[in-house]
Amino acid sequence: MSQTETKNQSGTNRDIVVSVRNLETTFHTKVGPIKAVNGVSYDIARGETLGIVGESGCGKSVTSYSLMQLIEHPGEISGGEVILGGQDLLKLSENEMQEMRGGKMAMIFQEPMTALNPVLTVGYQMNEQIIKHMKVDEKEARERAIEMLKLVGIPSPEQRYENYPHQLSGGMRQRAMIAMALSCNPEFLIADEPTTALDVTIQAQILELIQSLQERFNMTVQFITHDLGVISEIADRVMVMYAGTTCEMAETQKLLTSPLHPYTAALIRSIPKFGSRVEKLETIEGSVPSLFELPKGCPFQNRCPNVSDKCKESKPPLEEKRPGHQVACFHPVNL
């Protein structure tokens, strides 16, 4: 039985590796608190890839940072649970979390320089992590690091191993960071826009690498991207976020071909389609509400073509409207 078949079975016998329950993350800013993540729940099964999409600022990165517990003051995880392999990560000490990060769970950051130290060479940084989590000696760590740099398609890996981050191109920095995240065979990988700075051929190579590691080690992946083309190639299921909440979740093909939420539908229409050049790209009218002044009711109401009085009164709950297809909307499309 192929990977995909096992994965696509919904229901009872999925082997859940990651379970996020009502996650809430709040930033206490000078002008008041904002809930960047406002009650998000999802599960990811072993070997599965969950794609997360949504407009800029909707909380994708903050969700990921929360899972890794990298939220810094004045932010805090203000509620919920993050269960990895039966353990609630939010109950671990910082020391225990450090053991996890880079080892059992790893993250590819949206901006490589958040993960790379500018004053240390790429090789030094990789070695340190490999020695810590794989318990190997320096020589083995170096070999492993160079092997990983090669796997992510960095040419002359031995020389690049000696480079400082600023000596690499944008895409090479991103790949160096990917190499670092994958170097200790994580059980759970969070990839936050991992291929944004990469051209299509190298993007393909990285996605293939992630998929092959996934097949070999049954790695579980949370994959954030704004590129629905990439989503359709890599994700088994997709979660769409809007203003800190989940608005839709379904199997990838179902979501892309018959979205239920008006927001998802609009998102799909706004992709520049290769080969069909238009004067103006379609956009979604209006803008995301500020997290300071979230309206009562549905957060998408001010931009929604289907809006009614009900939407302004109460917030639609996330409900299963088709088998395996959840949506938070009173007036779904395509139903």
Partner: peptide, 26 residues
Amino acid sequence: ALIEAIPRVGQGKKKMRQSLGGEVPS
């Protein structure tokens, strides 16, 4: 090769198309 490698919506999850073969030279 570049034009060939563009990911497109609606092709479904599958083995990624063969990316440009060979080592990226330095």
